[in-house]
Amino acid sequence: MTDLILLLIKASVIYGGLLGCAALMTLAERKVSAWMQYRIGPNRVGPFGLLQPLADGVKFIFKEDVTPDGANPWMFRLAPLMAAVPAMMTVAVVPFAGDVTLFGYDFGPLSIADLDIGILFVLAIGGLGVYGVILGGWASNSKYSLLGGLRASAQMISYELSLILIVLSIVAMTGSLDLREIVAAQTGTFLGVLPDWNVFQQPVAFVLFVIATFAETNRLPFDFAECEPELVGGFHTEYSSMKFALFFLGEYCAMIVMACLTTVLFLGGAEVPYWADAPWFLQLPAFMVKAGFFCFLFIWVRWTLPRFRFDQLMHLGWKVFLPVALVNLFLTGLLISF
C-alpha cells in the first residue's frame, strides 16, 4: 500500500513538473525568439510574463471548439489525445535523479517506473505519437491537413529508423536497455580528464541523435507536418480550442522527453561530473541543466534555421543518416568485440 502511495506521489511530482516545464517552454519559445529579434516578448501577465502560459490556457479553454463539416468526429476527437498521451507516457521511465531522501524517508530513485527495457519503452511509445498527427490530418477532411499528416508519417518513419540504430550503438556499448544502467555506465572519467559520457565516446552518434530528435518531434528545420507557408497549419489547420492545445502540449512534452533522453543517453543523465555519489538534490539540478540546454537548443535552432525542402529531408534521412548510423553501429560492434 505504501508502495502505491509512494508511486502516486512520485508520479504526480514528475507529471506536474513535466506539464509545468511544457508550459514554461511555450513562454521560453516566445521570450527567446523575442530576444533574438531585439524584442522583449510577453511581459504583461505577471512578472516577466511568467503567468502568460496560464493566460494562454484560459484563452484556449474559452475558445470555440469547431469541428469542420465532413470531419470524422471520433477520429477528430481521438487524434489530439493520441498526440499528447504517448509523449507524456514516455517520461515515466526517465531517471531524473538517484535515491531521494526527504524528511528522513527514503523515496527510492526519482523515476516513476524502472523498466528493464526503458529505452525500448521510450522509443515504442514515443513512436505512437505520429498517429495523432496522421489521424488528425486525415480526420479533418481538409487537403492541407491530410498533406501535413502524410508528410509527418513519412518523416517520422524515416528518422525513427536512424534514431533506433543510433540508440542501438549506445545499447551495445552498455549492454543493457535499462536507462538507469546506461546512466550508471557513464560514471568515471574518459581519457583521464573528461567525464565518461557517451557524447565523448560516440560524438557522431550524438550529433546524429540530436538532429534526428528534431525530425522526430517535428521541430523547425524539419517541421513539415505544420509548414505554415505551404500548408496553412498542416495537420492542425482545422483544430481549435483545447484540441489544438493538446497538440501543442504533446509537441512540447515530446521535446522535453527527447531532451531528457539525450541527456540520459549521452550526457550521463543525472550524474554530477567527477562526483559519482552526489546527493539527489545536486543530481536533479544537474539533470535539469543538461536537459534544459537541449530544450533551449530546440528553441534556438527553430529561430535560426530555415525549413528544409521535403526531398532534402528524405535525402538526408535515407542517404546520409541511415548509412552513417549503420557504419557507426558496425564500428561500435568492432570496438566492443576487440
Partner: peptide, 26 residues
C-alpha cells in the same frame, strides 16, 4: 514479457501500422 510487449508496440504499432495508414491514405 516486457521485451515482447515493447517490440509489439515498436514494430507493429509504431512502424507497420503507420505504413498501413500511409498506404491506405495514398
Amino acid at each position: 514479457y516486457q521485451f515482447l510487449a515493447a517490440i509489439q508496440i515498436l514494430v507493429y504499432g509504431g512502424a507497420v501500422m503507420v505504413l498501413f495508414l500511409f498506404t491506405v491514405m495514398l
